[in-house]
Deep mutational scan, measured.
Amino acid sequence: PKDQAKKEIEKALRNGDEEKAKRLAKKYGISDDDWKELKKRVS
Rank of each mutant, 00 (worst) to 15 (best):
residue 5 A to P: 05
residue 43 S to N: 13
residue 16 G to L: 04
residue 37 E to A: 09
residue 24 L to N: 01
residue 24 L to Q: 01
residue 8 E to G: 03
residue 15 N to I: 09
residue 5 A to Q: 14
residue 11 K to F: 10
residue 29 G to H: 08
residue 2 K to T: 14
residue 14 R to E: 04
residue 29 G to W: 03
residue 21 A to P: 00
residue 31 S to M: 03
residue 38 L to Y: 03
residue 13 L to E: 00
residue 19 E to L: 10
residue 33 D to Q: 10
residue 22 K to C: 13
residue 5 A to K: 07
residue 7 K to L: 14
residue 2 K to L: 15
residue 31 S to I: 03
residue 31 S to F: 02
residue 36 K to Y: 13
residue 20 K to E: 15
residue 12 A to H: 08
residue 23 R to N: 09
residue 13 L to R: 01
residue 41 R to T: 10
residue 41 R to I: 13
residue 19 E to V: 11
residue 37 E to W: 06
residue 15 N to P: 00
residue 39 K to S: 04
residue 9 I to P: 00
residue 17 D to W: 11
residue 17 D to E: 10
residue 13 L to P: 00
residue 1 P to L: 14
residue 6 K to S: 08
residue 10 E to P: 00
residue 3 D to K: 08
residue 8 E to L: 12
residue 30 I to D: 00
residue 29 G to K: 10
residue 26 K to A: 10
residue 28 Y to G: 02
residue 38 L to E: 01
residue 38 L to I: 15
residue 10 E to H: 04
residue 28 Y to W: 08
residue 24 L to E: 01
residue 21 A to M: 01
residue 13 L to N: 00
residue 34 D to A: 07
residue 21 A to F: 01
residue 5 A to C: 07
residue 3 D to T: 10
residue 15 N to W: 07
residue 22 K to L: 15
residue 14 R to H: 05
residue 43 S to A: 14
residue 37 E to H: 04
residue 35 W to G: 00
residue 20 K to D: 07
residue 9 I to A: 02
residue 33 D to I: 06
residue 42 V to E: 03
residue 28 Y to P: 00
residue 43 S to Y: 14
residue 7 K to I: 13
residue 15 N to R: 11
residue 8 E to P: 01
residue 38 L to N: 01
residue 43 S to I: 11
residue 42 V to L: 10
residue 23 R to I: 11
residue 26 K to S: 08
residue 4 Q to S: 10
residue 18 E to C: 11
residue 24 L to F: 03
residue 16 G to T: 02
residue 27 K to N: 05
residue 10 E to G: 03
residue 39 K to Q: 10
residue 5 A to W: 14
residue 17 D to C: 08
residue 11 K to I: 12
residue 42 V to Q: 04
residue 33 D to R: 07
residue 5 A to L: 08
residue 14 R to N: 04
residue 9 I to Q: 00
residue 3 D to Y: 11
residue 28 Y to I: 03
residue 23 R to S: 10
residue 42 V to Y: 09
residue 33 D to Y: 05
residue 41 R to E: 07
residue 7 K to W: 14
residue 41 R to H: 09
residue 23 R to F: 13
residue 21 A to C: 01
residue 37 E to V: 04
residue 33 D to E: 14
residue 38 L to C: 05
residue 26 K to V: 11
residue 8 E to M: 12
residue 19 E to R: 11
residue 13 L to K: 00
residue 12 A to I: 06
residue 25 A to E: 00
residue 43 S to G: 12
residue 35 W to I: 06
residue 35 W to E: 01
residue 6 K to D: 04
residue 32 D to V: 07
residue 10 E to T: 08
residue 30 I to N: 00
residue 6 K to I: 15
residue 22 K to T: 06
residue 11 K to E: 14
residue 7 K to T: 09
residue 42 V to N: 05
residue 8 E to H: 06
residue 11 K to N: 13
residue 35 W to L: 14
residue 15 N to S: 13
residue 26 K to P: 00
residue 18 E to Y: 12
residue 11 K to T: 13
residue 33 D to P: 04
residue 12 A to E: 05
residue 19 E to S: 08
residue 6 K to C: 14
residue 32 D to A: 09
residue 16 G to V: 02
residue 13 L to H: 00
residue 32 D to H: 07
residue 17 D to F: 13
residue 1 P to D: 14
residue 40 K to Q: 13
residue 20 K to N: 08
residue 11 K to S: 11
residue 26 K to D: 08
residue 13 L to W: 02
residue 27 K to M: 13
residue 10 E to Y: 15
residue 6 K to Y: 15
residue 13 L to T: 01
residue 14 R to M: 08
residue 37 E to D: 06
residue 2 K to P: 09
residue 8 E to Y: 07
residue 29 G to Q: 10
residue 33 D to N: 08
residue 18 E to L: 11
residue 10 E to N: 03
residue 18 E to W: 12
residue 19 E to Q: 11
residue 25 A to F: 03
residue 30 I to G: 00
residue 29 G to Y: 04
residue 37 E to R: 07
residue 20 K to Q: 12
residue 39 K to N: 05
residue 31 S to G: 06
residue 36 K to G: 05
residue 37 E to L: 07
residue 28 Y to E: 02
residue 10 E to R: 05
residue 25 A to P: 00
residue 21 A to G: 03
residue 9 I to T: 02
residue 22 K to F: 09
residue 39 K to A: 06
residue 16 G to I: 02
residue 41 R to V: 10
residue 1 P to V: 13
residue 36 K to V: 10
residue 27 K to V: 08
residue 26 K to Y: 08
residue 10 E to S: 05
residue 21 A to T: 01
residue 26 K to E: 08
residue 25 A to V: 06
residue 19 E to F: 09
residue 22 K to D: 03
residue 37 E to S: 05
residue 6 K to Q: 09
residue 26 K to W: 08
residue 23 R to H: 09
residue 32 D to C: 14
residue 10 E to M: 15
residue 27 K to R: 11
residue 35 W to R: 01
residue 41 R to D: 05
residue 40 K to A: 13
residue 17 D to R: 05
residue 3 D to S: 10
residue 37 E to K: 08
residue 34 D to Q: 07
residue 23 R to A: 14
residue 4 Q to A: 13
residue 26 K to N: 08
residue 1 P to G: 12
residue 23 R to V: 09
residue 37 E to N: 06
residue 31 S to D: 06
residue 31 S to W: 02
residue 14 R to W: 06
residue 34 D to G: 03
residue 5 A to G: 09
residue 39 K to P: 02
residue 41 R to N: 12
residue 16 G to K: 05
residue 38 L to K: 01
residue 17 D to N: 09
residue 20 K to L: 15
residue 3 D to L: 10
residue 39 K to G: 02
residue 1 P to F: 12
residue 28 Y to T: 02
residue 11 K to D: 14
residue 22 K to Y: 12
residue 29 G to A: 09
residue 9 I to K: 00
residue 3 D to A: 13
residue 18 E to R: 04
residue 9 I to N: 00
residue 2 K to R: 11
residue 5 A to D: 06
residue 32 D to F: 12
residue 38 L to W: 03
residue 32 D to M: 07
residue 16 G to W: 03
residue 33 D to C: 05
residue 36 K to Q: 14
residue 16 G to F: 04
residue 34 D to R: 02
residue 10 E to I: 15
residue 19 E to I: 10
residue 3 D to H: 11
residue 39 K to M: 11
residue 6 K to W: 15
residue 23 R to D: 09
residue 38 L to S: 02
residue 37 E to Q: 07
residue 32 D to Q: 08
residue 17 D to I: 02
residue 36 K to L: 14
residue 36 K to H: 12
residue 20 K to A: 12
residue 34 D to I: 06
residue 30 I to V: 06
residue 17 D to Q: 09
residue 7 K to R: 12
residue 40 K to I: 09
residue 19 E to W: 10
residue 17 D to A: 04
residue 19 E to N: 09
residue 28 Y to M: 04
residue 33 D to W: 05
residue 18 E to G: 04
residue 33 D to V: 07
